[in-house]
Nucleic acid binder design. Structure first.
Length: 254
DNA sequence: ATGGCGCGCGCAGCGCGA
């Protein structure tokens, strides 16, 4: 079973890339973020023709998340229960014998921004919800664009980024709080090459120069981590014309 | 070198992302 996450930065623009990637990689489950479209525009028919069911929570211009699956899914939650939020950032489903949570974590902009206050409140609400969820369902996967680089190994220039957004102690502490629920970073369960990122700025030739951040993650409960055979970033779609600035992250489960 | 790219919105140029 192959599960994956991809911030597509507009599903309208990226649909051809998504369809090509589904055909080539054949994931069982794909979590998408930054749809930037309303639900009425969601490409249900195109994805069905490709063999995928979809559940989605979209909004105009910003945010929006979806989960695609070959197998039937049942909806668990749209948003974080008990956390009122206009921004469509969370979708949880049950598929096969597992729960899949797709998250588009707030960016935060900068540490002195109101958006950072929102980011930290959102992270706290997510963590509190998942603390209960992993008790209810010990086979849980949290996938998405976390907008957090957990470690200096996840940053192309750790000194330049030190204390900056995505790399601050507060954000890294919040990531650790998710790990403290028992979740494991699938990517770090395996020996990995250095300088693996999931996002590269569109500017400055960042992709060509491999200057990026690893901010898209797959976290697994121990029961799922025990079934995880591999985890990798697929850089190929980032090389295409008009790419998303993020690349898919994939985990292979037994 | 603090701007550089790409997206949505909407038809100029701005807000936002990370």
């Amino acid at each position: 079973m192959k599960i994956a996450t991809w911030n597509v930065n507009s599903l309208k623009v990226r649909l051809p890339h998504v369809l090509d990637w589904l055909a080539q990689e054949s994931p069982d489950v794909l979590c998408l973020q930054e749809l930037k479209m309303e639900d009425k525009a969601f490409p249900v028919a195109e994805l069905a023709a490709a063999g995928y069911q979809a559940l989605f929570s979209g909004q105009k211009t910003y945010n929006g998340v979806a989960i695609l699956s070959k197998q039937p899914m049942s909806l668990v939650s749209v948003g974080i229960p008990g956390f009122a939020d206009e921004q469509k950032r969370v979708l949880a489903v049950d598929v096969a014998d597992m729960r899949v949570v797709c998250g588009y974590f707030p960016n935060g902009q900068s540490l002195d921004s109101d958006k950072f206050v929102y980011k930290m409140a959102w992270l706290e609400a997510l963590t509190a919800w998942l603390r209960v969820s992993v008790q209810e369902q010990p086979r849980l996967a949290l996938l998405g664009d976390f907008n957090i680089a957990p470690d200096d190994r996840d940053v192309h220039d750790p000194e330049a980024w030190r204390g900056q957004i995505h790399c601050s102690e507060a954000e890294r502490g919040a990531f650790q709080a998710l790990l403290d629920l028992g979740l494991l970073d699938a990517f770090r369960q395996f020996e990995q090459p250095e300088k693996i990122w999931s996002w590269w700025d569109y500017r400055m030739g960042a992709f060509r120069r491999n200057k990026g951040l690893r901010i898209d993650h797959i976290l697994l409960t121990p029961a799922l981590a025990a079934r995880c055979q591999a985890c990798w970033v697929d850089k190929e779609p980032r090389k295409l014309e008009r790419p998303s600035d993020h690349a898919p992250v994939v985990a292979e489960l037994q």
